[in-house]
Simulated scan of single mutants.
Amino acid sequence: MTARVAGAALVVGTAVALSAAAPALAQPRAAGDQATVSVLHGVPGLTVDVYAGDKELIPDFKPGTLTDPMKLDAGSYDIKVFKDGEGPDGTPAIEKTVDVPAGANATLVAHLTADGKPALDAFVNDTSKVPAGKARLTVRHVAAAPAVDVRADGTPVFKGLENPKEAKGEVAAGTVSADVVLAGTDTVAIGPAELNLAEGTNTVVYAWGSAQDKNLALKTQTLTGMHSAPGGVPAGESGQAAAHNESLPLGALSLGAVSALAAAGLLLRLRASAR
Rank of each mutant, 00 (worst) to 15 (best):
E162V: 14
A211N: 12
E194K: 12
G236C: 06
K134F: 05
I94K: 07
L57E: 04
T138A: 04
D149M: 07
L72H: 03
L25R: 12
A152G: 05
L255R: 10
A172V: 15
K83W: 04
G191M: 00
H111K: 11
A144D: 05
W208Y: 14
V37E: 07
L266T: 12
G133L: 05
G225T: 11
A183F: 01
D54G: 14
V233E: 06
P131L: 08
K214M: 12
A198Q: 09
E199M: 09
G239F: 03
P23R: 10
A167T: 12
H227Y: 05
V176C: 00
K117H: 06
T201I: 15
V148Y: 09
E166G: 11
V109A: 07
T97Y: 08
A217M: 09
A152H: 02
L270A: 05
A211F: 06
S128M: 04
Y77A: 01
V12R: 13
V188L: 05
D60H: 13
A122T: 04
A243Q: 03
F123E: 00
Y206K: 04
L253T: 14
H111E: 09
E246H: 11
V5G: 10
P164S: 15
A152W: 00
K80V: 14
A274I: 13
A132W: 05
E56H: 13
L253P: 00
V48I: 11
S273E: 10
P63S: 02
P88R: 15
D186K: 09
V188S: 00
V171L: 11
A257C: 05
G85A: 03
A114W: 13
D68A: 15
Y206I: 07
G90I: 14
K134S: 06
L18H: 12
S177T: 12
R140P: 08
G225W: 02
T138V: 07
A31E: 15
G7P: 04
A102R: 07
L255C: 02
T224Y: 00
G265D: 09
A207S: 08
V150F: 02
S273P: 02
N105P: 03
T65P: 01
I58Y: 04
G154Q: 02
T222L: 09
S210K: 07
